[in-house]
């Protein structure tokens, strides 16, 4: 899979960064193209205090694109909610830095709810529980960081290049541009891909797509363009996409991208 976030850093602040669950998350983040930096303080008197100091120092030194921050550091009573204290310090000093809190359960203790309530509603802070799949973690981070990627890989064989305004088919050196997908057709495909990249199940309503169609019957015009996009990609991949493949019409409400298997 093509990496789309090269050069972006995610700082991981967790006393169990070598646990299997964290390793799986880190592997998935690296697949995404992010570089993971793990805070590893020298062992000291208090696990929580050491991590707090090391995390703040690390952010100061090398401002990351986002922080993945644990709530609980060790078993000591004072460190049960240490991460919330660290969160407070970070928000105060770097209010725009996206932070994903790694909790036991997202709908967990009242103190987390209280912290959520004490933040500005648009603070780039979110909570996710540690059992969340690595894919979920990636989706949350994408939204927290908020910037649109320069390219979006759709499955293994389709790559949308936002800057070049081209859709590439194939993998590696065999990759070629599908030149039939340009102009309005590219915009339609970009809308669908961007929405899918942000949240795989999100439908793009007709009202949003019809601005890229024209004529007396924009819905019919849109239908034709969608068919042309599917045919162009199918031709380049030596296949033909059926009604429920690649771009799906959902109960006459809009369209949704379904990456080919």
């Amino acid at each position: 899979m093509a990496k789309v976030n090269t050069g972006r850093n995610i700082l991981i602040v967790d006393d169990e960064s070598e646990s299997a669950i964290l390793r799986a998350v880190r592997r998935r983040l690296e697949e995404e193209g992010w570089r993971t930096v793990v805070v590893e303080p020298e062992p000291g008197y208090s696990v929580g205090e050491e991590f707090e100091a090391a995390a703040l120092w690390s952010i100061e030194q090398d401002l990351p694109d986002a922080v993945l921050l644990d709530v609980r550091f060790g078993e000591h009573r004072d460190d049960q909610f240490r991460g919330l204290g660290i969160l407070g310090e970070i928000v105060e000093r770097w209010p725009k830095l996206p932070i994903l809190m790694f909790t036991q359960y997202a709908q967990g203790p009242d103190r987390e709810t209280a912290v959520r309530g004490s933040l500005q509603w648009d603070s780039p802070v979110d909570f996710i529980d540690k059992l969340a799949s690595p894919d979920e973690v990636v989706l949350r981070l994408r939204r927290l960081i908020g910037t649109s990627p320069e390219s979006i890989p759709i499955g293994n064989n389709i790559l949308l290049d936002v800057n070049a305004r081209l859709v590439y088919i194939g993998a590696g050196e065999d990759r070629t541009a599908a030149l039939d997908i340009q102009g309005m057709k590219f915009e339609i495909f970009r809308e669908l891909a961007t929405s899918w990249y942000r949240s795989p199940g999100e439908l793009v309503a007709f009202s949003r797509l019809e601005r890229y169609s024209e004529g007396e019957d924009p819905r019919a015009s849109l239908r034709v363009r969608i068919r042309e996009i599917k045919d162009a990609i199918g031709k380049a991949m030596n296949t033909r996409f059926g009604p429920s493949e690649l771009i799906l019409n959902v109960r006459d409400q809009g369209y949704r991208l379904v990456p080919p298997k």
Partner: peptide
């Protein structure tokens, strides 16, 4: 209770 499950899920993902 979550701890063993995190281990199981972590190993499964690995």
């Amino acid at each position: 209770l979550g701890r063993p499950l995190r281990r199981i899920a972590g190993k499964e993902r690995e």
